[in-house]
């Protein structure tokens, strides 16, 4: 066991424990905060995988953006402390059984497939330059499409979220 192994175990425990809180806590505000810490742990996993740019992006977009957006969504609906997640027991049983079956199938696949591993030791090199070159080279079309998608989502969210009763801009 090298120190990085302990880091991996701590991060994995954080992610899975916070994921369990997200799914099983009955108060939605606690779920939202657990989701924030789960995103944080995923950012740490990216660092272990030598993806430094992604770790930064994860912190900025997920922890700083999406989590806060979800918290705003909860706070803008009334009665936060009584806002429960409202489950029914049939859903719990059927959903739980399906999920467990899926987890079993995924585990069987993971351990029975012969992965074509090409490298286990990789020198850390900063990836931002490579990513920038790829975005301006082979990946320019999806990059521009993503820009258009973000613009469409921004305008769409503003128009949908507007209060209809106060019309006429």
């Amino acid at each position: 066991m090298v120190p990085a192994d302990f880091v991996f175990l701590i991060l994995a425990t954080l992610i899975v424990a916070c994921g369990f809180v997200v799914v099983f806590h009955s108060k939605i505000i606690y779920s939202a905060f657990a989701l924030l810490f789960s995103f944080f742990g995923v950012g740490g996993i990216y660092i272990l995988l030598n993806a430094d740019f992604l770790a930064g992006t994860q912190l900025i977009v997920y922890v700083g953006g999406i989590s806060v957006l979800i918290l705003f969504g909860i706070l803008l609906t009334k009665k936060i402390y009584n806002l429960t997640t409202e489950e029914t027991s049939t859903q719990k049983i059927i959903g739980g059984a399906t999920s467990l079956a899926f987890l079993g199938a995924l585990a069987a696949l993971i351990f029975n497939t012969d992965w074509q591993i090409v490298t286990t030791t990789q020198e850390f090199t900063p990836q931002t330059l490579e990513i920038g070159k790829a975005f301006m080279g082979n990946f320019i079309l999806p990059f521009e499409l993503a820009a258009i998608l973000l613009l469409v989502a921004l305008i769409g969210a503003v128009i949908i979220g507007r209060d209809e009763k106060k019309e006429e801009i």
Binding site: V23, S99, F102, L106
Partner: peptide, 26 residues
């Protein structure tokens, strides 16, 4: 795989729209 199944479980069992969104994010 564990994270995926947790998200799937959230989408299956929750009736609250924000909780379902959290499952999608997971």
């Amino acid at each position: 795989a564990i994270l995926f199944v947790l998200g799937l479980l959230a989408m299956f069992t929750k009736r609250n729209a924000i909780s379902i969104l959290m499952g999608v994010e997971l």
